[in-house]
Design a protein around this nucleic acid. Structure first.
Lengths: 208, 208
DNA sequence: GTCTATATTCGGATAGAC
DNA sequence: GTCTATCCGAATATAGAC
């Protein structure tokens, strides 16, 4: 199971990046096509045969890039997490930390809504037998770290506040994806929801 | 596609209920076993062979009850929606409408958390090619109606308030299912989240 | 309604040559 | 890395007798 990451790092040596330059490029192209097919047929209905066809090789040749179908899902998962991380890092933080949180939430909801299949793979446990490897989780950990910073800057610091926050984001995202895919019906609610959370936090500070 | 409901209502006559009494009973038993297998193997990995085995008949005999595998999913979907509806109807509403909303949210989050596979089938579009039939959606419509009443009684009346509410519920449920299945880490946040929503609604009333 | 028998298709995966 | 050839298993679904 955990040897699935082997295909990502063939040799323990550091020369890996140079040696496998073309390899990595083609691998990336395969993953890109896998997303396309997943959009067309559904994530669970993705077939290695079709994937090989779409990239112009024979189906067994895929095993030079992934050691199993779950390995492919793992690579897609990591790819998706890297997209999320890259996007979050790109954003220039707003001056006001609370406005920044609003912007983040809006962006996260859009991120999910833009690509339902990606949302499925990253945030729902839909593929039987699939569990993300440690390597694939790495960008996710970095994302969480980054989010923690932003939240702290905005005064969302307690564990239960963070739990509430995560619920708000995932709820908006889920409703957006499920009931208005591609639209913005729940995106536009982000500000109001986040402000309600801040109001609640402020009120809590006064209470005792 | 829509003939899938045919197996639910073999004849357009009203004698259906009497005629197929045993039929319906066995059908219900099959569905119950289908849930079990889905828990064991994953919803998407459910196999008609295993299902037939588990109920003591041969695989082709299942076609006397469902006209396809998607038809089986449809029946499971309807079953799950009926469970949700029955449960909501059972609850004795609390005196205070707002307390009632809190209780409802807690209960909905528990409902999802109790059975992840059911949550998947009812609230996530995870099975390629599956779309619930009108018949299977019927209990869901009634549930929505019932919720609308309760929400209205508590002053959650505007469309965007309802959207926010639905996001809160689905967010709490999703986080509970994904990160603490069977626990109550997000269940206990229901009260706080709902109260924050009411505070926000009240504040809105004062604002203009 | 249930059975046997079978069709059919498709899936992922492996062996071994080039 | 890529190929051909093939395995093997599993899946849903159908035909037709009882």
């Amino acid at each position: 199971m955990s040897d699935r990451l082997t295909s990502t790092t063939p040799q323990p040596t550091e020369t890996t990046d140079r040696r496998g330059e073309r390899h990595q490029a083609k691998r990336a192209r395969i993953i890109a096509n896998a997303w396309k097919l997943a959009h067309r047929d559904g994530l669970a209905a993705l077939s290695l045969r079709d994937l090989a066809d779409s990239v112009g090789i024979r189906q067994p040749s895929l095993y030079a890039y992934f050691d199993s179908k779950l390995g492919l899902y793992d690579a897609m998962f990591q790819d998706g997490q890297e997209q999320l991380l890259a996007r979050s890092r790109t954003r220039v933080p707003l001056r006001d930390p609370r406005d920044e949180i609003v912007a983040i939430v809006e962006d996260l909801v859009r991120f999910s809504s833009e690509d339902i299949v990606r949302h499925q793979l990253l945030f729902q446990r839909t593929i039987p037998g699939f569990e993300a490897s440690e390597a694939a989780m790495a960008p996710s950990h970095q994302f969480v770290e980054l989010m923690a910073e932003r939240l702290q800057a905005a005064g969302i610091t307690g564990p239960s506040e963070v739990d509430v926050f995560s619920a708000l984001v995932s709820g908006l995202a889920h409703q957006q994806v499920a009931n208005d895919p591609g639209g913005d019906r729940w995106v536009v609610l982000a500000r109001r929801v986040v402000q309600a959370l801040f109001a609640d936090i402020d009120r809590e500070g006064e209470r005792p």
